[in-house]
């Protein structure tokens, strides 16, 4: 095969990719390709070093609202419609199949979710916020954690001993952090919400317990913490189950004097804590402090608190 022939083939492939919008070519090459198209003939191209065969990151919010559908009757309306939902609408199709861009976005989103689940929270972050680490009953890693939620709800005996030895008992507010199903959520939100919780509690005169990090954590572990440390309110910041492409969502579960046997009905939750779309972690922190005050005033949380509030009325 002659060099000329190879060049010609590459040129043809590139042109095809460019036509599909998959190649971010240098303007130099683009104008050459355009020229060749208008001339209707194949021209020789030196494949320059600055050519990048790569597409833009499909997961940015800007990229997500570029319609794949061509010739929409009302392009503006389509974009507005796409902005209102995370559902994959307006993507168009290539024959019976999804477009390359649709598939790439789907695969990227899936990778984001997987990463969030299988990563471990950065130890540097835990150090920065003085969070020592304890384990639940999970001993065989993520697979077991996923298959055995019941074990993620109980602290190991070592954890219980460590907590007893290191933590202040009977504080007003006990803050705990758990990885849950998304390490990413913890890493992006903790630096923002922790200082708000701490300064917020201090400024309204609530005493703080010693915070720590729970590895392989499920929400139910709050009961064990309540049993051991007997705080008024436990706040557990925990990574939510990632959605497709949405890994940074965190919840703050809160319970008044949790004890073994308590269920979700006894707890409060602030969910969807993340920047740009959810409740931002700073405001969520300030609201959590307010909610903690309410719980202490009403001496209850969850359904019981609501029922007692309703009967007051």
């Amino acid at each position: 095969m002659s060099d000329d022939h190879i060049d010609e083939l590459i040129e043809a492939v590139l042109r095809q990719l460019k036509a599909e919008g998959l190649v971010a070519s240098s303007s130099n090459l683009r104008s050459q390709a355009d020229n060749s198209q208008t001339a209707g003939s194949h021209t020789h191209t030196n494949i320059s070093a600055d050519l990048v065969i790569d597409s833009d990151d499909p997961t940015t919010s800007m990229q997500r609202i570029i319609p794949g559908l061509e010739n929409a009757a009302d392009q503006d309306a389509l974009v507005m419609l796409m902005e209102t939902t995370t559902a994959r609408i307006g993507v168009g199709r290539a024959g019976y199949r999804p477009k390359t861009k649709t598939l790439q976005l789907f695969q990227s989103d899936f990778a984001i979710s997987q990463d969030a689940l299988y990563r471990e929270v950065d130890p540097v972050l835990l150090q920065k916020f003085d969070l020592f680490q304890v384990e639940t009953m999970i001993t065989e890693g993520k697979e077991q954690y996923l298959l055995r939620p019941d074990l993620g709800r109980k602290l190991s005996s070592e954890a219980m001993a460590l907590i007893k030895s290191r933590c202040v008992k009977r504080a007003n507010i006990q803050i705990c952090v758990g990885d849950g199903l998304s390490a990413t959520a913890i890493e992006v939100n903790i630096p923002k919400i922790m200082p708000v919780l701490i300064s917020g509690c201090q400024s309204v005169g609530l005493s703080l317990g010693t915070p720590f990090f729970i590895h392989h954590c499920r929400v139910g572990v709050m009961n064990d913490i309540g049993d051991i440390l007997e705080p008024d309110v436990v706040i557990l910041l925990i990574g939510e189950r990632p959605g497709l492409g949405r890994a940074e969502s965190m919840s703050a579960y809160m319970a008044f004097q949790p004890r073994s046997g308590d269920t979700d009905a006894d707890r409060e939750v602030i969910c969807n804590i993340f920047d740009n779309g959810g409740t931002n972690p700073l405001e969520a922190g300030a609201y959590a402090v307010q909610l903690a005050q309410t719980m202490m005033k009403n001496r209850g949380s969850g359904v019981k608190m609501r029922l007692s509030k309703d009967s007051e009325r």
Binding site: S199, G200, T279, L282, E283, V289
Partner: peptide, 13 residues
């Protein structure tokens, strides 16, 4: 943007 409560909490002091 939704920052009133946290700004309030901070500024109050």
């Amino acid at each position: 943007r939704d920052y009133a409560r946290v700004i309030g909490q901070t500024i109050k002091n």
